[in-house]
């Protein structure tokens, strides 16, 4: 087993900057996408290319290039996917809160479709992230599941937003669906920090796992690289899901005026 040292060649030192440059590129593309509607034809494609390309390289970096973690050994490599996945879930769900709030302030199908897209993608990333956390916990803590504040809150967060998605499926009227799910989205988002603290206090005698404070720069670089890859994919997923949701919304809104009620009026 190789172990890391804190001295690197200047070549490696230079390489450590690469994730930050890629991150800046991805953020710039997302910015252009958001603020320039005309650029949206190509920005998502560029993001997709970057995201898929980086995701293909990610296992090589995380599974072989980076040396095993000092305390956790090779199991620590799960963290290079687990941590960014959970970060992305949090970004998506924060976006859902923003979209819900925006809808209640000013009704618009754009914010409704964005809320739908971000919640679904957030639940996807969150579900994968939590499962990866459980996979990491088994060899590290000896059990897939422990009463840990972070774990419990994450699991409940998933249940809350699964309920949100179920609600969206159960209401036919698009305007009612948009309003009600926005209300539920705000309740859910406000509840999450509250839940986090309450669960922490509930079992405050159990200390949560503390991380080693000295993190090797190589590991930070790989973590940042993975997060950038997932961020690009997240942006593409949310945008594509948003297009699906908006198209569906347009169909729904157009229908009642275009067609008479099926079977005539009673």
């Amino acid at each position: 087993m190789r172990h890391w040292t804190l001295t690197y060649s200047s070549q490696t030192q230079a390489l450590l900057w690469l994730p930050m440059i890629l991150l800046a590129l991805v953020l710039a593309l997302i910015g252009v996408h958001v603020f320039d509607p005309k650029a949206r034809r190509w920005t998502w494609k560029a993001l997709a290319v970057i995201g898929v390309g980086m995701a293909v390289g990610q296992p090589f970096l995380a599974l072989s290039w980076v040396p095993p973690e000092k305390y956790m050994g090779d199991t620590g490599r799960i963290l290079y996917v687990h941590v960014p996945q959970v970060w992305m879930a949090l970004i998506a769900l924060t976006l859902n809160f923003g979209a819900s709030l925006a809808f209640l302030l000013k009704k618009s199908w754009v914010s409704d479709a964005l809320a739908e897209a971000s919640a679904e993608v957030g639940v996807l990333f969150g579900a994968v992230g939590v499962t990866l956390g459980a996979l990491w916990a088994k060899p590290t803590w000896g059990a897939y599941w422990t009463w840990d504040a972070r774990l419990t809150t994450a699991a409940i967060l998933l249940v809350v937003y699964s309920g949100y998605l179920a609600l969206r499926k159960f209401i036919e009227d698009p305007e009612k669906r948009a309003t009600w799910s926005a209300v539920v989205g705000i309740f859910a988002a406000v509840d999450i920090p509250v839940l986090w603290f309450s669960v922490k206090w509930w079992r405050s005698m159990h200390q949560t796992q503390s991380n080693p404070s000295t993190v090797d720069p190589l590991m930070t670089a790989v973590l940042r690289y993975s997060a950038t890859a997932f961020l690009a994919l997240l942006a593409v997923f949310i945008y594509q899901r948003f297009l699906v949701a908006s198209a569906k919304r347009n169909e729904e809104v157009a229908l009642p005026e275009a067609l008479p009620a099926v079977g005539g009026t009673p």
Binding site: L63, S64, W65, T75
Partner: peptide, 28 residues
């Protein structure tokens, strides 16, 4: 440097929870 051969080498031997690492990357 990143190489597919090295990755395969690592994934090959199941020590210290490698099966969990494989499961995690496969699932993702």
């Amino acid at each position: 440097f990143p190489s597919p051969i090295l990755a395969a080498d690592y994934v090959g031997h199941v020590v210290g929870g490698w099966e969990y690492v494989q499961g995690a990357y496969g699932l993702t």
